[in-house]
């Protein structure tokens, strides 16, 4: 199947009632700092919802999920949610503020700018992160060439010593250093790596949602079972529950606030709660722009060392 996005098929933005989604309970990202943070945020960055993409995805797959009275296929739902979450528009840029709160209430703050360019819908992507805070990582940049189902290519640039370092990335199934957050939470776990079952239709924050259960095809450290709450109308992931092999609830993700930017619904405030460690992380996006006409040449060594000022002030 070819998931390449038909860019001309894009339609107008959704109506306002679609985007006024209420806030909900907590999801905790347990967060790593420094590079790890970079990475995860890189990928977690935009979880936007674009009605047009959902529509495009539906028609491309010839699925009837859009029709109200048919029971949607669970795998198809997860695919749509994945595209909405990780592949909104053709490109995007935003400022990100991340707050890590431990069990004693102590906060740590991270700030960075992020850029993303889709090369294939549901496939190759390039990411760029430019750190602002804290001081010891400020001005560092981080670049990922994401290759689904293969090892990503990652580089980090340390300006104080003019050093470009390649980073090993064989950690898709493991969590980031010191955090409960796995690489695949962020970059998006390809929907074909799990089997999916539609558990029920439900109501979440007064909106109709599909509740899908996912079980990894191959044994996976990240979770043994995942339950995803997908908004029936715009396919935005509103909540995810991660269960471990013992069947215990380990982490909860929630989309806390959704806004429309450049015609794309985006969950601009998110929370990841680590139930076990009693800590959480919030991520807030601002200055969000989509379809800015980013070129692939941005994601090269030249711009790794010289942040593109047209996008990163």
């Amino acid at each position: 199947m070819n998931w390449k996005k038909e860019r001309s098929e894009k339609v107008k933005s959704p109506s306002s009632d679609e985007r006024m989604l209420p806030a909900s309970g907590g999801r905790v990202w347990s967060i790593a700092m420094g590079v790890a943070v970079a990475l995860m945020l890189t990928l977690a960055q935009f979880s936007p919802v674009a009605a047009e993409e959902v529509a495009a995805g539906n028609s491309a797959a010839g699925n009837s999920a859009a029709q109200e009275n048919t029971v949607p296929d669970a795998a198809q739902l997860m695919k749509e949610a994945h595209l909405v979450m990780f592949y909104a528009a053709d490109d995007g840029v935003a400022e990100v503020q991340m707050k890590i709160v431990n069990s004693r209430g102590k906060e740590r703050l991270r700030e960075f700018a992020m850029m993303r360019l889709d090369l294939e819908e549901g496939g190759k992507q390039d990411y760029y992160t430019y750190f602002r805070k804290p001081h010891d990582v400020s001005r560092m940049s981080f670049m990922v060439h994401k290759l689904p189902k293969e090892t990503d290519n990652r580089w980090i640039y340390v300006p104080s010593v003019d050093l470009i370092k390649r980073i090993s990335s064989d950690d898709k199934a493991s969590s980031f250093v010191g955090s409960d957050f796995t690489y695949e939470d962020i970059s998006g776990r390809h929907w074909t790596e799990d089997t999916h079952k539609l558990l029920k239709e439900d109501t979440y924050n007064s909106r109709k949602v599909y509740v899908v259960e996912s079980i990894p095809l191959e044994k996976y450290k990240g979770f043994a079972r995942k339950v995803t709450f997908i908004d029936a109308e715009n396919k935005l992931i509103m909540k995810e529950e991660y269960y471990n092999a013992k069947g215990d609830l380990a982490r909860i993700f929630t989309a806390e606030r959704v806004e429309e930017h450049d015609g794309v619904l985006t969950s601009v405030f998110r929370k990841m709660e680590n139930v076990k460690k009693k800590q959480y992380t919030t991520v807030e996006f601002s200055s969000i722009r989509y379809n800015v006409g980013m070129k692939e040449s941005i994601f090269t060594e030249r711009f790794l060392k010289n942040p593109p000022r047209e996008f990163i002030k």
Partner: peptide, 11 residues
């Protein structure tokens, strides 16, 4: 050889 270990949420 270089070894780097991170604990306590990388603090």
């Amino acid at each position: 050889s270089r070894m780097t270990m991170l604990f306590l949420m990388e603090t």
